[in-house]
Design a protein around this nucleic acid. Sequence first.
RNA 1: GGGCAAGUGGUGGAAUGGCAUACACGAAGGACUUAAAAUCCUUUGGCCGUAAGGUCGUGAGGGUUCAACUCCCUCCUUGCCCACCA
Length: 799
Amino acid sequence: MGYPFKEIEAKWQKAWAENKIFNVSADPKRKKYYLLEMFPYPSGKIHMGHVRNYTIGDVAARFKMIQGYSVLHPMGFDAFGQPAENAAIKNKTKPDIWTHKCIDWMKLELERMGFSYDWEREVSTCDASYYKWNQWIFLKMFERGLAYRKAATVNWCPSCETTLANEEVIEDGCWRCHAKVEQKDLEQWFLKITEYKERLLEDLTQLKDWPERVLSMQTNWIGKSQGVEIYFRLKDTETTIPVFTTRVDTIFGATYIVLAPEHPLVKNIIKGKPQEKEALKFIDKVARESNAARISSDVKKEGVFTGSYAVNPVNNEEIPIWVADYVLMEYGTGAIMAVPTHDQRDFLFAKEHKLAMRVVIKSPSRNAAMSPDEMKEAYEGDGTQINSAQFDGLANQEAKTKIAEWMGQTGIGKIKTHWRLRDWLISRQRYWGTPIPMIYCPKCGVVPVPYENLPVELPKDAPFTGEGGSPLGKVKEFVNVTCPKCKGPARRETDTMATFFDSSWYFLRFCSPGFDKEPFSKQEAKYWMPVDQYIGGIEHAILHLLYSRFFTKFFKDLGMIDFSEPFTRLLTQGMVLKEGEVMSKSRGNIVDPDSIIKEYGADTLRLFILFAAPPETELEWDDRGIEGAFRFLNRVWRIQDNLKDKSDAPLIRIMHKTIKKVTEDIESFKFNTAIASIMEFVNAIYQSQADKEVFSNLLIMLSPFIPHFAEELWQALGNKESIFKAEWPKYNPAMLIEANVTIVIQVNGKVRAKIEVPSGTAEARLKELVLADEKLKPWLNSPIKNFILVPNKLVNIVI
RNA sequence: GGGCAAGUGGUGGAAUGGCAUACACGAAGGACUUAAAAUCCUUUGGCCGUAAGGUCGUGAGGGUUCAACUCCCUCCUUGCCCACCA
C-alpha cells in the first residue's frame, strides 16, 4: 500500500538519464561546484555505508544544482585489489571478468537509489585507459627521484603472501586478514613521500573545513618532533653515540644511556666484558619476540648492562650503557639518554635496576626540589633548572633553547627534527593491479618503459592460484622483453602497484575522463578543481587522504595544476550500526538496501537515513524508522488532492520560516533538522489550507532528499521542466517578523509566567506589563534587585 | 600512556549562554470500520497533587553568570585514532 513508488522511481531514473540532466561540461559563465564521494571498491553489492555516504552527497549535489551551480558529481570504481583475485580463485573465474560483473551490478544498484551522477564520466581503475596514467605518473616520479628501489626489510603477510605498507599493519596484524605480520627482506619500489613531509604538515593549516579529528590524525602520522641530537663518546675511544632527545633541558640529569637491542654498536661494546653472555642472551630473546609482544609487556621494562660507559659531553660524567627493549631502533637514533627523574619510562627502569637519579627541574609548586628517593613517579612538567651548571635558575622551556644553541656552538650536539612518516612502499607481489613500468636489463640496469610504450598491459591470462610469488612472473611473454636502451634481452618488473596509488588522483581524472594526452586536461582541471566537498568514511583519514594530498603537490610541482590541496571541505560520515554494532557480514546484522528499496522505495530509504542522525555521527538502523519515513511520504502525497485557491496567512509565515531554516541547515549539512522542520511545515499544512504555490515550495525543499517523489508531484502540478531546473525558494525577511511575541518571565532564573506583547515593546512599557501580571504576584514578595531584558524573548527579575 | 570526540525521555535525536526534550519512533486512549489495516485526533521525562499547581531533572562533583545541556576546573564512562616516539 501507499503511493506508487515503484513506477515513479523507475520512470524518473529513466527520464533523468535520457535528458542527461546530470551531465555537465565546463561552463566558465557559471559557478562550478565539484562534489565527490569516495568511490567504492566493487565488491558486488552496495551496503548501507555506501547508501549513507552517497545519499549525503546526493543531497548536497542536487541542492547546489537547484541553486544554479554547474555541479560535477561523478562516480567510478576503485577496481584493482586483492579481494577480486581471491574471489576469482574461489569462483574459478578471472579477476577481470569478476570485477566487471561486480561493477555492472553495483552500478545498477546505485542507479536504483536515484543518485545524480554524471555517468558519462565513469572510470574504473582496472581499465588500461586509466592505469596507463598510473604508469605515466610513476615514470614522472622516477625521473624526479621520487620513485626508487631499495632492499628493505618489509612487512610480509604470510596469509595474503604479499608485502604491506607500514600503514597497512595494524597492531602487528595484516589490515585485511589480521594474520600476524612477519619480517622479510626484498627489493621493493618506494615513493618518496617524505620529500613532501614539511608541505604535507604545513598545508594542514589551510584545511579550515576539515574535521579537527582528521587533521590531528594526519599531524600525528607525519609525526614531526623537534629536538637535539647529542653526541656521547664511548669511554676510552673516539666512537660517538648519537642520541635524540626532545628534552635537552634535562641533559644534566642523564644518568645512563640505553641502546636498542638491534643497535649496531651493541655487539662491539659487550665483547670481552663479563656481561657479554647475559647481554647476548637478552638480545637474542628480544629478537625472537614479535613487536606486539614487545609492546604488550609495557609493565616491565627489561634490559641488561653492557659493561661499557659513555661520557656525557656536558659535564664529562661517565655513565653506564644499558641495552633495553623499550628503546626502538626504528625511531630517532636507536639510542637514548635516560633521565629517570623526568621521564616515566626511565624512572621505572632505573628503580627496577637501582640506577642513579638526579633531579634537574624543580617543580614550581614546591619550595625545594624533591630528592630522587621520595619520588613516586617522574616529574615531566615544567619548572626551573637546577644542578645544570651555567643554566641553573632558567625556566626549563627557555633553557631548552639556550642549551640547544650552546650545544650547536660547541659541537656537543645539533638541533634536529625527527619525523615519523616513512617512505611509501608500493610494490605488491600480486596480479590484479597496475604493472610497474620498469625493465631490468643485465647491461643497462633498471630501465623505465618509454612513454610511447604505455600502457604496460596486464596479461589477461596469468596463471594464479593464490600461492606464493608474483603470478606475472609466470607469464613468459610478459616477462621476457627487449631492453629499450640496448635492445638486448631483458626482464620486466613483475610486481604491481598498491591500489592506494590508483585512488590518489582519480578526482583529477574525473575532470576529463577520456583525455588521452596526459592523466588529465590542465584546462578542465583548472575549471573543476579543487573538489569543493569530499565525503567519505573516517577509515581513510590517514592513508588515502595523505596520499591524495601528496600526489596533488606532485602535480603542482610538475606545473600541471596551480593549487596544492585537492579537497577544500571534507565530511566524514558516521557508520551505520544495528543493535549498537557496526553492520558486518561476520556479525550477521546486515540490512540489505535492495530489500528496503523493493519494499518501500529508494526515497523512503534516503529520507530515513538522512533523518535518523546528523551525517557525521553514527546511525542506528531502525526498521520502524523506515516505516515512519514511508508514512511521512504518504502524508505529503495526500496534500495534492486537497489544494485550495489560497493559503492561510499564518501558513505563509511558517513557509518563510521553513525556507530559511531548511536552506541554512542544508548548507551546513544538518539534514536531520532540515527534514524535521519540513515535517513541522507539513503538520502546519494539515492544520490549515495550502495552495499550489505553498505546495510547490514544499516540493522544491524536499527534492534534494527525495528526488523521484518531488519530481513526480512537481510535474503532476503541470510543470513541464524538471524540478531540478526550478529555482530554490527565497524567504522574505519581512515575513519572519511576528506582530506579537511571547515573553518568558523568570524570577531568579525560574520560569514563572509568559505574556504576549507586541513585537519591539519598549523596556519601560514591558516592565509595567510584567509587574502587573497576576501570576507573578506570589513570587514578587521581596524587593526587586535587578531587571534583565532579552529583547523579544525573556525577562529575568532578580529579587 | 597521549590526542580527539561523545554522554540529554522508553528509543533515534533537538536546543551552543535565555522556555530542556523540537521532529520522529514507540506506547496509551479516542474517532472511522461488521472487523482489521490504513488514516485522523488527543496524551506521553520523574515525583507530589482530584486539579490548579509545585518540585526535581541533560554522566558525577565543584565554579563563573541575573541565567548553564551549552563556558571553566576535577573526575567517571564509552567510542575512535596514535602509541615503549626518547
